[in-house]
Write a protein that binds this DNA or RNA. Structure first.
Lengths: 153, 153
DNA sequence: CTGCATGCAAACCCTTTGCATTGGG
DNA sequence: CCCAATGCAAAGGGTTTGCATGCAG
């Protein structure tokens, strides 16, 4: 069996964290699907493979992954935290579209050059003005998805 | 005593909600300081004025304010929900800067005009492409604040 | 071997709900 | 007057912690 988590595993160890069986499984799950996952999503995905890793372990592993800069943690609402591959390992940076009614979360990365240029520019200005060292950003649009628009009637 | 919450109170009533003493106090607190507040921030602010409104009431009032579109609810992390005046009543829409280390939250609106114009454009593109009815957006930059940069050494 | 990683149960924190009471319009 | 608003206590849901055991390096 090929360990999909290969490079990521090394990154993790470089951070002083141990590459255990549980963590390999978790990393592989991130590699398979690139949409944002909650701790519970991961928990269920693992059980679906007839493996078992406790929720607590998942939380602690995610914590390490965040500290090792492999995974990004973010929040769309306060219901639950979401995690996704960060930086270079993420296929591409993307933004979010959130539906107010059904909580559908779409991530899109088909943004135009214009969008990228704009964000870069704002980033520079803001970094300078506030003496902030900017690592990352999050852009989400909130509204009503196609489906809920139709149901409204 | 001048009721700072005047116009907002009318907006609230227009939504079918009652303008009670508690809600007046809460609205006034939003009018005084325009930075994002958590339910507890509001609770403490009220006690600081030697008044008293239960936390539960604050949550329920915030809920009504959000439904009446007077206040916007959002999350930077999952720790607690934040609320701020929404739409026209907010002096201006603004974006956030979050420090990874100390969780400092700055909201800035210095570049808003330019940003908003460009974001509006992106909004249109995205809305069309994904058949989304967009109501609002959130933009946050994540990084290290000035102070934590210095402490690093 | 040593110290981080794990599992389980219990603790925690923020937020919501049930229920009887109060009060706005 | 009626129904929304309030307060308190208890429940809820996601996340974290304490503690004894397991395992990577």
């Amino acid at each position: 069996m090929t360990t999909l988590s290969g490079q990521l595993g090394k990154d993790l160890q470089r951070g002083g964290y141990r590459l255990t069986a549980s963590r390999k499984i978790i990393l592989d799950i991130f590699r398979y699907g690139s949409r944002p996952l909650s701790a519970e999503d991961i928990y269920l995905a693992i059980r679906a493979e007839n493996k078992n890793v406790g929720l607590t372990t998942i939380y602690r592993a995610l914590d390490s992954l965040v500290k090792a800069n492999i995974v990004r943690k973010f929040a769309v609402n306060t219901e639950r935290a979401l995690y996704e591959l960060a930086g270079k390992q993420a296929c591409e940076h993307h933004h979010h579209l959130v539906c107010r009614k059904c909580d559908l979360l779409i991530d899109y990365k088909d943004f135009c050059e214009e969008e990228v240029r704009l964000i870069k520019r704002i980033e520079e200005l803001v970094a300078k003005r506030h003496s902030f060292e900017i690592h990352d950003h999050q852009l989400s649009f909130v509204g009503i998805c196609n489906r809920c628009q139709k149901e409204k009637k």
